[in-house]
Amino acid sequence: TYTYKLTDEEASRRAEDEWRNRGYDVRVRNNNGTWEVEVR
């Protein structure tokens, strides 16, 4: 499981799409203004 911490929502969406396209399960959540993109 990888977790990315990003401050930019758009960057988190791009990361989400990119990993999803590669067949990974992705979750995005906002934690106090930081976007966490979790990849498994």
Rank of each mutant, 00 (worst) to 15 (best):
D17V: 14
E18L: 14
G23Y: 02
E38W: 04
V28T: 05
N30T: 07
Y24T: 03
V28W: 02
R29L: 10
N31L: 12
E36A: 03
E10N: 08
R14M: 10
T3H: 09
R27V: 15
R40L: 11
R14N: 08
E16R: 07
T1G: 13
E10G: 08
R29D: 04
Y24W: 06
Y24E: 02
E10A: 13
E9I: 07
V26T: 05
E9G: 05
A15Q: 06
D17F: 13
R13G: 05
D8N: 11
N21H: 09
R40C: 13
V28H: 02
N31H: 10
L6F: 15
E38D: 06
R40V: 10
G33W: 01
E36Q: 05
G33E: 04
G33L: 02
T7G: 13
D17T: 14
T3I: 15
N31M: 11
G23D: 02
W19P: 00
V28L: 05
V37N: 00
K5D: 13
G33F: 02
L6Y: 15
E9N: 03
A11E: 13
Y2F: 14
E38S: 09
R27Q: 13
V37L: 10
D8E: 06
A11V: 04
Y4P: 11
K5T: 15
Y2C: 15
T3L: 12
A11N: 06
R29M: 08
A15D: 06
R29C: 08
T3M: 10
V28C: 05
G23F: 01
T34N: 07
V37D: 01
E10H: 07
L6V: 15
R20W: 03
V39C: 14
T1L: 11
W19M: 04
D17G: 08
L6M: 15
E18G: 05
T34Q: 12
D17H: 12
D25H: 11
T34C: 07
E16P: 02
V26I: 04
Y2G: 07
R14L: 11
K5W: 14
E18Q: 10
R20Y: 04
N31Q: 08
R27C: 13
V39M: 02
D25I: 12
K5I: 15
N30G: 06
E9P: 06
T34K: 07
E10V: 09
R29S: 12
T3K: 09
D17S: 13
G33M: 03
R13E: 04
T34G: 06
D8P: 00
R27K: 13
R13P: 02
W35A: 01
E18C: 15
V26D: 02
Y2E: 11
A15I: 15
D25A: 08
T7D: 14
E9S: 05
Y4E: 14
K5N: 13
N32Q: 07
R40K: 10
N30A: 08
T34Y: 13
W19G: 01
E9M: 06
S12Q: 03
V39N: 00
T1N: 12
E38A: 05
D17M: 14
G33H: 03
R13Q: 08
R13L: 08
V26P: 03
N21L: 12
N21M: 11
Y2M: 13
E38F: 05
E9Q: 07
E36F: 13
R40Q: 08
G23H: 03
D25W: 09
D25S: 08
G33Q: 03
V37W: 00
N31A: 08
T7C: 15
N32I: 02
D25M: 09
E18Y: 15
V26A: 04
Y24N: 02
Y4I: 14
W35C: 03
V39Q: 00
R14E: 10
L6R: 00
V26S: 01
Y4N: 04
E36W: 13
Y4S: 04
K5V: 15
G23P: 00
W35K: 01
R29H: 11
E16A: 15
E10M: 10
R29N: 08
Y2L: 14
W35I: 04
R20Q: 05
G33A: 03
N21V: 07
T3C: 15
N32S: 06
T3F: 11
N21K: 15
G23M: 01
T7N: 13
E36D: 04
W19V: 01
V28A: 04
E9D: 04
V28M: 04
V26Q: 01
R40P: 04
W19T: 02
E36R: 01
N30L: 12
K5P: 11
E36T: 08
E18A: 11
V28N: 00
R29A: 07
N32Y: 04
N31V: 14
E18H: 13
Y4M: 10
S12G: 09
R13I: 08
T34V: 15
T1H: 13
T34F: 13
D8W: 04
G23N: 02
T3Q: 06
A11P: 02
T3N: 06
E36K: 00
S12L: 10
D25E: 14
R14T: 08
D25Q: 11
G23A: 00
R22C: 11
D25P: 03
N32W: 03
N30K: 10
V37A: 02
E9F: 09
R27D: 08
T34D: 07
W35F: 07
R20K: 11
L6T: 15
Y2Q: 12
R40A: 09
A15T: 11
E18V: 10
V39H: 01
Y4K: 04
Y2K: 14
R40Y: 12
N31E: 08
K5Y: 15
G33K: 02
R40H: 09
Y4T: 05
E38M: 09
E18T: 09
R20E: 03
T7L: 14
